[in-house]
Design a protein around this nucleic acid. Structure first.
Lengths: 136, 136
DNA sequence: GTATATGCAAACCGTTTGCATGGCT
DNA sequence: AGCCATGCAAACGGTTTGCATATAC
């Protein structure tokens, strides 16, 4: 049995009850302290492979809950599915068009020196930067 | 009756047959030479309002065809629907979170001085920049 | 005449929801 | 006890597809 202290604390941070399913999913997401990019389906597959008994609907609901709790961020790259990123600060992504995978791009290598002026009465919510890659 | 020469030529450019429906949709998209951002539903509504008889499926198929012909670009901002932009060069967008609308952002006001290094064996396809706005 | 576009309805796929059951506090 | 999470299956919404008909070349 893995030590799930970190995952449990992570759930606490979002004010979420540490149920068996949430702990299992949290463990898969942040158990090793690395960043992860998942879809509902891919996380469901991960859980199933790990022998965890979680329903697909719960994976969806749980990811929504994590998202609303600010524990993960939703990223949209292709219309068909939603990706969730365990890294929650504003940073650029690589999108691998051939394999449909999403990974972090090094934030320090991106420099935006000027941004279009935000229109009257609006404020900046976030800047999504997706660097799309194709096989050379 | 509007002059549809421009729309007809635009279709030609993509190697697409100028059928009645395509002409009507093209006219709504590029008839006045301005850039437009539509979803299948919104274009369908535009067409219906203009009294054009086009089925929703044809709007979907036509937008796909325009996209594959390089006449428009598909942009994804929120997972639920696809937006199509008649401006095909790489440029930033404003996404108005409250009204779910997508508009162009002035490209000349965006300056990216450095971009994360493109990984081995990959090449840059496109850089999507979506500036998300919320009501102040 | 032949290839391709259209329209309709049904299929599709990722996601959400209603409702009954089960678990935390 | 009471609230909230879970599981299942059914509903959902945007999009695609199969097939018969109509249109462009």
């Amino acid at each position: 049995m893995t030590d799930r202290t970190h995952s449990a604390e992570w759930l606490m941070t979002g004010g979420l009850r540490p149920t068996r399913q949430r702990l299992a999913l949290a463990e898969l997401l942040v158990g090793d302290g690395l960043n992860r990019h998942v879809t509902a389906e891919s996380l469901f597959a991960l859980a199933s492979d790990a022998g965890e008994k979680v329903s697909l609907a719960t994976v969806y609901n749980t990811l929504r809950a994590f998202c609303e709790a600010g524990l993960v961020t939703e990223i949209v790259v292709d219309g068909s599915k939603s990706y969730f990123d365990t890294r929650t600060d504003d940073h650029p992504h690589f999108y691998w068009e051939d394999s449909h995978r999403l990974t972090d791009a090094p934030a320090e290598e991106l420099t935006i020196t000027s941004l279009p002026q935000v229109p009257q009465g609006m404020e900046l919510s976030r800047v999504d930067v997706v660097i799309r890659l194709r096989r050379a």
